[in-house]
Every structure is written in C-alpha cells, then in structure tokens.
Design a protein around this nucleic acid. Structure first.
Length: 265
DNA sequence: ACAATTTGACCATC
DNA sequence: GATGGTCAAATTGT
C-alpha cells in the first residue's frame, strides 16, 4: 500500500468536504454543478483511499459462509429458568476488522459479556444489537484489543443486522427542497452508518431510536430542538449543526459511496 | 425509575 | 477438563 497516496487522498477528501460544507452552510446553490462536482470529488477521494487501503471492494474482510444457520438463538427448550443455558453459535457468517479504535459502525450495540481469553493480553467484549429483542436483530460483535501501542482492536462481526434503525441511514442530499428554505433536507436510506450516542457522544443532541423505554423504538418523541417532524419519520431530517459533518464525513460507508456514485450524473 | 454495564455462573464445544 | 459464548442478577449511571 502506498501510504503517501493514501494521505494525499485523505487530505483532498477533507478539503473537498470542507468546501462542500461551506456551500451547504450558505444554503445556496445546493444543486449546482459545482456542488455536485464537490460531492463527487469527496466521494472519489474517499473511494480511492479505501481502494488504497485494500478494503475495497471487499469491504467484508473475511466473510466465511459456513452455512445458512446463522444467528438463531440456540437456547435449549428447557432453559427457561436456567442461567447460561444455550448452545454455542456456530456456522455463522462472520467478518473481522482491525482498527485503531473500536469500530464506529453506525449500529447500536449493547454489551452483554466480557471474557478473559487464554493467551490474550486483553479481555474480549461481547456486544449484541440493541434491537435484538424489539426487532429480532441477530447481529453480534466481539471486540478485542490486540495491541497496546498503537492501540489496535479487532472487531469480529457475527451475523448481519436485520433491524430497521432509521438513524442508521444513508444521507443523500435532497435537491427537491424549496430553494428558499435554508434548512437542507437529507434523505435517509438504510445503509449509511450513523454513530450512536453510545459510541459517539457528539450525537447526544440527536434522538436515539431506542431512547426511552428499554429496547423499544419510540417513533416520535424527540426534543423540540432536534425534533424530527413527520417527514423525518419518512426518512427526511433537517441538517445537523455544521460541526456534525466534521465527524460525519469520516464515517461514509463503502456501500454508500457506491450508491452515491451510481446516482451521480 | 429506568437503562446500560459488569460480572459470575452456566453450558456447549473441543 | 479447558475454553469460550451467553445469560441474567447485581451494580452503576443518567
């Protein structure tokens, strides 16, 4: 891998993103060729970077399709009142990723266990999707620190999300806005990674779908300052504060890059 | 009070 | 029997 090229692409991407942000802040010409070009450049830079990082197109690093029997809970039928009665999950789709920080993948996770692993310096943490029960989402992940300096974490994903978390959505500029409206509407689909409050405190001003009652998605109970109006629930939301994008642009998912590039022109 | 995390127990697999 | 994955009571945080 060429580190210099990676760095160049990242720097370019950041510059383009900054320009795009300024244009968006001004709220004018959101659909101009210049804006389109900027967006395209941003995406191209990050796509190139990801290519260079050898993470694209095979975003899933080590997919192993062992069988169709994925994340079904295998608790035995008589385990009602017995603690820890289960069958170890096997034959599940899995992929591993190594990063310098525990991966912020846009999903909401709840830790359900921690285990000291033989011959491992650090314990392994076990997470399941927050929507395991309310939406029967079977995704789980294991995070284990594998190196001290620099800190390196291995995240193993088991199963895939079947939950429909509306915040976990792709952001696509909605160019059909009333031009006089200075707020920019964003369209969300279900592929963009959105940092959770749990994993990313800066999102604290955003309502979490699972906030409120335990394990339950509250459809529209947002505070006034960040309220999602009726259209929000139909995948539109007003633009977050500008600082939001400083982070948000760091978390573009490859699938979404494809999506957006495909939509281009 | 409710939600999230911690932690010891339990069980399946090797 | 050792190990790893999950459960769920207890604890902590908001």
């Amino acid at each position: 891998m060429d580190d210099r090229k990676v760095l160049e692409e990242l720097v370019k991407g950041r510059e383009f993103a900054n320009q795009l942000r300024q244009v968006m802040i001004n709220g004018k010409d959101n659909d101009s060729p210049f804006v389109r070009s900027l967006a395209k450049n941003v995406l191209r830079s990050f796509t190139n970077t990801l290519f260079l990082l050898d993470k694209y197109p095979s975003y899933e690093v080590s997919p192993s399709t062992k069988s169709e029997d994925s994340q079904e809970s295998c608790k035995s039928f008589n385990s009602k009142n017995k603690r820890g009665c289960y069958k170890r999950k096997r034959n599940t789709q899995e992929r591993e990723e190594v990063s310098q920080t525990p991966k912020l993948d846009g999903h909401q996770w709840r830790k359900y266990g921690q285990k000291e692993i033989l011959n491992a310096k650090y314990s392994r943490n076990y997470y399941r999707c927050t929507h395991k029960y309310d939406q029967n989402c079977q995704a789980i992940k294991q995070v284990q620190r594998i190196q001290e300096d620099p800190p390196l974490y291995k995240t193993t994903y088991l199963g895939h999300h079947t939950c429909n978390d509306f915040l976990n959505s792709a952001i696509i500029l909605d160019s059909n806005n009333d031009p006089s409206d200075t707020s920019i509407l964003l369209s969300f689909n279900n592929t963009f990674p959105t940092p959770t409050k749990q994993e990313c405190p800066f999102l604290s001003s955003f309502p979490s779908p699972s906030s409120g009652k335990k394990e339950e998605v509250i459809p529209s109970s947002s505070p006034p300052e960040t309220s999602l109006d009726d259209s929000s629930r139909h995948n539109n939301v007003t633009l977050p504060p500008p600082d939001f994008w400083d982070v948000m642009f760091d978390s573009v998912d490859l699938d979404d890059v494809n999506l957006l590039l495909d939509c281009d022109d």
